[in-house]
């Protein structure tokens, strides 16, 4: 089965990972901008990172038949540096017309501070000004519930936000209901310890249905598993779910959500056949 990984940080992964993903049926990835593991020192550092995301990474993925898309922002972990955050937000429009740029993300909250909320709101302004879809990171562990509620407050109180064009990521049992109820898309991240397991993601699909739900690996430089989406597919099959339901979650839903971006030029692999026998 072909699938998308709609949230994976390939700049932190090896070329071997691309090969493995391709062999497991991955045909496209979307890579939100995130934290490098250390705070970047200047706006030029972000400019180089965005260049890597929009140029080098796209070409590296293409070598394995994987189409690479990306989202741009300054991560919530770096939002405490308000001055730098504003410089990055002002620079992002330089890249919005680059191929594969789907929107603004992953913006969000980390420790739910005032500065994080402030910079989140300024990212929303940027997205609205440039008519961009939005991909949102929700905090980890004990901060998730509070942070998700705060994010939903900021989104739903802004009448300019089109809920169809916002994906709220890393939802779990205690946040998925609120996100879907407010009309947003929701992503489930399959992480070994701190987020969802393939089993719990399958439970959430059974409770809420496949509509507006995506699954991703959020593979990055930390403990994570880039092949987690195939684990989810396997779990769903073992439970006897229809292939059409599985495909909806891992392939059709990402395409439907991403198609709202003007730079989403995805072509299904069979449309690309160049050799006929």
């Amino acid at each position: 089965m072909y699938y998308f990984d709609p949230h994976i940080h390939m700049v932190s992964r090896t070329t071997d990972d691309y090969a493995t993903l391709a062999r497991m049926g991955c045909v496209a990835v979307s890579e939100p901008a995130f934290w490098a593991g250390f705070d970047r020192g200047s706006v030029d550092s972000f400019r180089d990172y965005f260049h890597q995301l929009t140029d080098f990474e796209r070409r590296r993925a293409a070598q394995f038949g994987i189409q690479h898309f990306t989202w741009l922002c300054i991560n919530a972990k770096e939002a405490e540096n308000v001055e730098l955050s504003r410089e990055v937000i002002a620079m992002i429009p330089e890249f919005l017309d680059e191929p594969g740029v789907l929107g603004i993300g992953e913006i969000g909250l980390n420790k739910n501070t005032r500065n994080e909320a402030q910079i989140f709101l300024e990212h929303l302004d940027l997205a609205i000004q440039f008519d961009q879809p939005i991909l949102i990171h929700t905090p980890h562990l004990e901060d998730k519930y509070l942070g998700t509620r705060m994010i939903l407050d900021m989104l739903t109180s802004d009448h300019r936000i089109d809920t169809d064009r916002v994906l709220v990521d890393h939802v779990e049992e205690h946040t998925v209901g609120d996100v879907l109820k407010d009309g947003f898309w929701a992503g489930m991240t399959l992480y070994p310890v701190t987020k969802c397991t393939p089993q719990r993601a399958a439970d959430i699909i059974e409770v809420y249905g496949p509509e507006r739900l995506l699954v991703n690996s959020a593979g990055d430089w930390g403990p994570s598993k880039p092949t987690a989406v195939p684990d989810f597919i396997f779990e769903m099959r073992q439970r006897g779910h229809a292939e059409s339901v599985i495909r909806r979650v891992v392939y059709e839903n990402p395409i439907e959500f991403f198609s709202q971006s003007s730079n989403f030029d995805y072509r299904a692999p069979d449309e690309e056949a160049v050799v006929t026998i």
């Binding site: 739910n112 004990e142 519930y145 509070l146």
Partner: peptide, 13 residues
């Protein structure tokens, strides 16, 4: 599962 999640969560104001 939801109840366990909420148990380990900060509360919302």
């Amino acid at each position: 599962a939801r109840a366990v999640q909420l148990l380990f969560s900060l509360s919302y104001d």
